[in-house]
Design a protein around this nucleic acid. Structure first.
Lengths: 253, 253
DNA sequence: GCTTCACCTAGGGTTAGCCCTGATCTGCAA
DNA sequence: TTGCAGATCAGGGCTAACCCTAGGTGAAGC
């Protein structure tokens, strides 16, 4: 049985390797390492490991995207994601790429040694193991009242990088009114009181929404940076929503 | 010579301990450990170590505050701060508490082993060692055109947690016009174009300012969380500016 | 003394963003 | 088919947030 450890930080690779070799995992096989996502995909296809530890934040190819490519060829691979943060963004993304009955794990990097071992065993025997710290995050992504639609999520990202309603509307091929409508329901789901609620505490909803989203891990710093360069750098469609694609095509033709 | 390692993560303590014992640091003394800021201050006063490694983000007492207390009693202690992020907030805070000619270091946690050793040697021989990654951050804190005043920084924090101009003014015992004035110069220093500049890209300055500040590390997530609870929880003065204190006293009396 | 600089204040104007109602269209399910 | 729910769009009202100019204060420095 081969285990693949993928992380760009030497310290973390070392930590996992020591941990795993203390258990009985390495008895029947080897532990291999990769430093980035691209190499991880290569090695996974070559070695067909039973278990892969994948750091999320890596150069070249993120852990999420690497997992997507690996699972395309080898859907039975057990994958354990490693993350520093309990970010809802990542959980959202991960949920989309794992096969319905696939076994995967999600452990935070401050996990105890026992927890990592536990997660490894669970995934190897076909179960999932989710770090307790992000249990409520998962729940939130499945609760209808708090789970954001793609439309609301788009709007959130746009205001987070500082775009105006007008700029967002142009970007998404919608009217400003539509954006305001999206924002309104976004604010509601994030639980931000409006002017009419006459609360004690006054909020600038727009900024408050960004703040709350940040605290909940709906967006995070490095994700936002990517979005910012994507939005300011190029022209055309950002999100692959049907309307946007249609409008973009129509405009060019 | 005694060395003190302060970090709430076992993995990082282990990493440092191994690293230091490989060098020639532990020959003439011991390496001690602490798990949080309070314990660090205790141990520092008791052991009077020549060198202290301090993680910034810790429970009970942050590394910055711990350093402040330690340096009060033992100004000649060499202190090396450890941080995950190259955040300008921390550099700002640190700059205020270190003695003018004190020796200190600032290393990021993704530093190589050699860099840590190098930093330790430098600080022990009375020099400073700053991680290359934050060199430009330091430069920015000393550049007049980009360095924020305390007033602008206050305003930045307030809009970052989502307060309105009105709420900020009430909180800081100022007029809304004063807040707007602060914000205006803040936007200028952050390089955010206004409506009048008629740029291609339109920005909501308020949100954009938060975004830029976040990317530069002028504010960060955990800092903002603290500010938020401080602001929404209590009434009265937030920042210790003279006017605010005076106004608060006058109001009560 | 004077100058400089950072900061607060003020007034008056423009606009973006939030609020409400209501209409249209879609897809989904009873 | 009917009804329900969601998303989009519209118009009109309101206020917070930005823009400009300009005067006043206090501290630091020549």
């Amino acid at each position: 049985m081969t285990i693949l450890i993928v992380d760009d930080e030497e310290r973390d690779r070392l930590w996992l390797r020591n941990l795993l070799s203390q258990g009985d995992f390495s008895e029947h096989g080897k532990i291999e390492e990769a430093h980035d996502g691209e190499r991880a995909v290569e090695l996974a296809n070559k070695l067909q490991p039973a278990l892969i530890f994948l750091d999320i934040k890596m150069p070249k190819l993120s852990g999420i995207k690497a997992a997507e490519q690996i699972l395309k060829n080898l859907p039975n691979t057990g994958i354990i994601m490693l993350s520093n943060f309990q970010d809802e963004v990542y959980v959202r993304q991960l949920w989309k790429i794992v096969p319905p009955n696939g076994a995967f794990g999600y452990v935070l990097k401050n996990a105890s040694n026992d927890q990592v071992i536990e997660a490894a065993r669970a995934v190897l025997s076909g179960d999932c193991w989710i770090h307790p710290g992000i249990a409520r995050v998962i729940q939130r992504t499945q609760n209808k009242a708090t789970n954001l639609t793609t439309a609301e999520y788009e709007a959130l990202i746009c205001i987070s990088v500082g775009m105006t309603d007008h700029a967002i509307a142009k970007r998404l091929y919608l009217t400003e009114k539509a954006i305001q409508s999206r924002l309104k329901s976004l604010y509601a789901k994030l639980g931000i009181p409006g002017r009419s609620e006459a609360q004690e505490t006054e909020y600038n909803q727009r900024c408050r929404a960004v703040f709350v989203a940040l605290q909940r891990g709906l967006v995070n710093q490095s994700e936002l940076q990517e979005w910012d360069s994507k939005i300011s750098g190029t022209k055309g469609v950002i999100f692959d929503t049907p309307q946007a694609v249609a409008a973009a095509v129509q405009e060019e033709g």
